[in-house]
């Protein structure tokens, strides 16, 4: 086991897959000569050269489209968005091309492509730079969506994503690149589509992903101090959803809280809530609650931002509520 930051785990995944398969290349803004805006791709240009570490101008629609066209022609691009906020200007490329070309061509084309980068709020970047894109990218078929929260998951899932023959949306987080954790030595692959229990428990199921994981774990610790046992499930893949893992836990706890970065209207949290309600309605002893962003544009000021973003305290309140604990 090596202790790595998430950024290092991601870099190792890219490096190993580039060494393994010459068709894999990285493309995006500042990925090469600048060594990556968040240093995920540091050193890769020196190792692989400009053919395979491709700096682009500021043109998300352009380089996302180039990645798609290259994937159709047999390459395996890793497209880095400096942040998923900037993917909004490439949305048509992902929605209408990446997600649809295999179906539209009746299976003539395969699109092995990863779109990766930081997602959701960082810290005091205001509304245009603090958005969680799950609700957009999980909202249509033809893609898989992954969100990682630990170095081991980051490496194992990115390697799987690069080897997958489908378009993959791969969410990271600016504020989590320095998070450290143990990563298994040697070839480390984690299957896409599998959730993981990050903290076992018996009283309340807390479903989370991405930045939500740290909040959920902190809330579970607070709840434990009050004698409430929480099982924290990290979805890791948001599309397709691992219904089985969530349902198995809720059948045990009879209670479910969702903790995540993202707006409450529609989206992945609402989807999980719908599935739990449909798949194990009779097992529920309380309404499913969601702890997420307030339905607002993110403000810059630190005190306001803290109010909008979910906190362990807010998550704890929801955990108490579904357990009918008075405070």
């Amino acid at each position: 086991m090596a202790t790595l930051q998430i950024r290092e785990a991601l870099r190792h995944a890219i490096d190993e897959e580039m060494a393994r398969d010459e068709r894999v290349f990285v493309i995006g803004e500042e990925v090469g000569h600048y060594d990556g805006a968040y240093k995920v791709t540091e050193g890769l240009l020196a190792k692989y050269g400009e053919r395979r570490v491709v700096d682009t101008p500021i043109a998300e629609a352009g380089f996302a489209g180039v990645g798609i066209g290259a994937a159709m022609a047999g390459l395996r691009p890793i497209v880095e968005f400096m942040t998923f906020n900037f993917s909004a200007v490439a949305f048509d490329q992902i929605l209408n091309n990446a997600a649809k070309l295999r179906q539209l061509s009746n299976g003539q084309f395969t699109l092995p492509i990863v779109f990766r980068g930081p997602n959701a709020a960082a810290h005091m970047l205001s509304s245009t730079h603090s958005q969680a894109f799950e609700s957009f990218y999980c909202g249509f078929p033809g893609v898989k969506v992954v969100s990682v929260a630990t170095p081991a998951d980051a490496k194992g899932l990115l390697k799987s994503a690069i080897r997958d023959d489908n378009p993959i949306i791969f969410f990271e987080s600016e504020v989590m690149y320095s998070v450290k954790g143990e990563v298994p030595d040697g070839e480390h692959l984690i299957p896409i589509g599998k959730a993981e229990i990050k903290r076992p428990g018996s009283g309340v199921t807390v479903v989370t992903w991405g930045q939500g994981l740290a909040i959920a774990l902190a809330a579970a610790e607070l709840a434990q101090a009050e004698g409430l046992s929480c099982e924290v499930i990290d979805l890791r893949t948001l599309r397709p959803l691992d219904d089985d893992a969530v349902v198995a836990s809720v059948r045990k706890t009879n209670r479910c809280v969702l903790v995540y970065h993202g707006w409450p209207y529609g989206g992945t949290g609402a989807e999980v809530s719908d599935r739990v309600m449909r798949l194990c309605f009779d097992d529920l002893d309380a309404p499913i609650l969601r702890v997420c962003y307030e339905d607002l544009n993110m403000p810059y000021a630190e005190n306001l931002e803290h109010l909008v973003i979910p906190s362990p305290a807010r998550a704890l309140e929801a955990i108490r509520e579904v357990a009918y604990r008075q405070h």
Binding site: I68, G69, A73
Partner: peptide, 25 residues
């Protein structure tokens, strides 16, 4: 025939990507 595209202009970067692959390979 690598495609008829129905969103105006959307195929231009994709076509550039095909050419990128040609240069790469």
């Amino acid at each position: 025939l690598w495609g008829g595209y129905a969103i105006v202009g959307s195929h231009v970067p994709v076509a550039a990507g095909h050419a990128f692959a040609s240069k790469y390979n």
